[in-house]
Design a protein around this nucleic acid. Sequence first.
DNA 1: TGTTTCATAAGTAATATCACCCATTTTAGT
DNA 2: ACTAAAATGGGTGATATTACTTATGAAACA
Lengths: 212, 212
Amino acid sequence: MIKLAITDDHPLVIDGLLNALNDVPDIVITGTYNNGASLLSGLQEILPDVLLLDLQLPDKKGTELVPILLQQYPHLHILILSGIESSPYIREMMQKGCKGYLLKSNTDKVVLTGAIREVYNGGIYLEASLKEQLLHEMLIVKRKIDKLSPRITRREREVLNLIMKELTNQEIADKLFISLRTVETHRYNLLQKLDARNTAGLLRIAREMGLE
Amino acid sequence: MIKLAITDDHPLVIDGLLNALNDVPDIVITGTYNNGASLLSGLQEILPDVLLLDLQLPDKKGTELVPILLQQYPHLHILILSGIESSPYIREMMQKGCKGYLLKSNTDKVVLTGAIREVYNGGIYLEASLKEQLLHEMLIVKRKIDKLSPRITRREREVLNLIMKELTNQEIADKLFISLRTVETHRYNLLQKLDARNTAGLLRIAREMGLE
DNA sequence: TGTTTCATAAGTAATATCACCCATTTTAGT
DNA sequence: ACTAAAATGGGTGATATTACTTATGAAACA
């Protein structure tokens, strides 16, 4: 039996969902809520396995609500049901730990129950085209900056890699059998070329360049 | 017309591929190579659109060869044809900029030509199950350490976030209206709690914890 | 109403990084 | 062989971070 809670600020949507899930034998509704506050207090009473969540609630944005929910209930499977189709936004929600994302525009009863069962069983539910798109972004985005970034020499790249591995300049010097001063020079040149101000910036740009 | 080069150290595999692609009207073979060195010199003569590449070559590992190739020919679409099915390995190759990954075990003529056309047109080719797996890993891995990591206080998290934004301690102090010394204390406590040795470690763990 | 945790911050020092200057040698490209 | 670029590393400071200890008022909580 999958315990499901529903949160949406449109009563009609909740009605529709209740109706659709009414005769599904392995899903039981533990509660319906129409804003963030009532959801949070409701979950203290009874905790579902899966939460079907609309992101546009009157009192709290989904981007804030989801981290709060997952901090309190790390095992809660959150399945987003939203009208927003922007892929960076979807990625953000998934990275915050949601287990699935349904688009209101093309979710019918079959898709809905399938998605609920999928996330209940520890899976990820995303529409095929969204999956495709997310994967594409994650893989492809990195490369683009490569061409824009200034030419870094082989040695500089090497040093940068070791900085990323959390070595200090001295350790890098020892590992490469060069002087500490040389490493400092390379590091300084990296800061200049990559237009960074400190280690944090260096690491950010290194990741953007795709070196891991 | 898609110009394709093939690199594999098994003559039989090359024969098979040539045979399979023989009567495909929109694909023309510009060259076949059986090791890294001959590939690199061959590409200087004639540059294909797509390179079908086996990763286990006698003279050079794929992990080394691919970056070299992409540095010299950034527009080359590399399609891996390999027997290795390890997903971290596949992810590594894709992150290095390969456009597709075919498994020798289940690649037939239809799959092959489809993949070649896909990457030629700027797409990513991965078998459905691999796509699934990669996406799953990318999204899910982050969360797991959250529970293991020690409890960081609200303020510490705040400081960590600003460190990630490349602010110095002084700038963080100014932004939060607290003393430089306080920021230093928070930072020191973060290093202790997260078991990091420097900024780079702090940033790595912060990312693992999912805060961006 | 205690008790613990948090946020604050100073003291003291050792290291590490950043910001430039410069010069020499080695390597790579034509 | 010539030239440009890369790798090497010293000099000199200024800043920033790391490594601890101690301490106090505030807030959370039981």
